[in-house]
Write a protein that binds this DNA or RNA. Sequence first.
DNA 1: TTTCTACTCCCCAGAAATAGTGAGGGTCGA
DNA 2: TCGACCCTCACTATTTCTGGGGAGTAGAAA
Lengths: 243, 243
Amino acid sequence: MLSAMTATQPLEAILEELEQAEGLAGLQAATEALRIHYQIDHVIYHWVDSAGDQYGCGTYSDTWRNRYLELNYLRVDPVIIGCFQRFHPVDWKRLDWSSKAARAFKSDAIEHGVGNQGFSVPIRGPNGQFALFTVNHTCDDAHWAEWTELHRRDLILIAHYFNEKALDFEPERTPEQSQALSPREIDAMTLLAMGYSRAQVADTLSISEHTLRVYIESARFKLGAMNTTHAVARAMSRGLIVV
Amino acid sequence: MLSAMTATQPLEAILEELEQAEGLAGLQAATEALRIHYQIDHVIYHWVDSAGDQYGCGTYSDTWRNRYLELNYLRVDPVIIGCFQRFHPVDWKRLDWSSKAARAFKSDAIEHGVGNQGFSVPIRGPNGQFALFTVNHTCDDAHWAEWTELHRRDLILIAHYFNEKALDFEPERTPEQSQALSPREIDAMTLLAMGYSRAQVADTLSISEHTLRVYIESARFKLGAMNTTHAVARAMSRGLIVV
DNA sequence: TTTCTACTCCCCAGAAATAGTGAGGGTCGA
DNA sequence: TCGACCCTCACTATTTCTGGGGAGTAGAAA
């Protein structure tokens, strides 16, 4: 199976198809196409969210997908936990499967058709957006290592394109435009986000604490925030300050 | 110049070189190699951070690099601000240059050898790590559009590889993943980031304000934060909470 | 079993932030 | 020239946070 793979010319065609994809259904179709193209068991793209698995597509069975959500495997899955801390794409073998919950999860997964080998690419967008692009298969370690080595770059690019599309479909994810902050307000928000107290910020900016307070209040007003912490949080999530 | 570019066979060689790169000097050499290879004015990879531009490499002049740091252009640069809110790689023309500070920045940049055209790829790692990979050049819009279209995929991959290397070289940059927050701590931080006061948060979570305080304090401790605002800011920038 | 972590509750005093109003001078664009 | 916005400074009373203690439960891990 794996050895029959053609490493030539796949990327272009697949990326073209991805670029044409419309809506979640388009992405779903792309995962199926990739699965067939690469002749592997599964291809999955999914958005990982504090609220759970609200968005994604892939070739897993509905049974497994539902089970994953119901049993809240999100909090147990070593793939999620491990990828969340990494930048590099990662082979599942390198993750930490030592806990009892993780082992139980794995055997349950395999029972539901998930391959024993896997490779996942973490992807991050603005505002803490986090998603995974995963391929998995059933085969031995040597074949899998060879296959992932061969297609590593393709998978990174494909993951990137999947996420681009997913973000396009979810425009409400992009931070809303708000009134810009003045330079002094940005200074104030930035220093506050760095943990300085008002007194320290005022001192750092060489202004009186009274003046500083005016900036904080006007920033709060512009951002529609109820208190300083809220204002800083909004400024950060809108990309107005970088901390 | 641009038309003399060879689009064939570059990616492999360049990525090979990148994979061999050792230390920041290796990345620096890679930017230079890329600049020559693509025959463009500049190639830059840099990490964006509250503390400023402490880590990066590229082909800008030292004069400009220092000026950028001294004048704290980090807080003004529309490339930073724009890319921070995006996932897609972005042409500089599509950014918001309308503010006075932004226009002043741009003309200053061009005076110091930065090209009038630019293309930047935002890259994000764990714990809120954020970096940019930028190429820029002096030419007209049509040529630039053609060139970026041609090399878009390569640039995404190169950006990815740069960041992999940079993270490998700077393990201490991502240490503070230390302890994850407990579920209750995440609840507390999230609600605080949404602007709730302690009383409101306690009420929402149906716990006493005293208990809430314990969570806030332990979260603050885990995050190494000096106050609540700081803790929320860190939790956000490390992607522990999403608001 | 023991240890560890998470979760819950309590008191108090001092430090810090907030609300409400005000005022003057500067720059910039219409 | 005039409005709009930015930067700077001031007072008082009230609310909210913070830092220092201590203590018991339950569940999971070693």
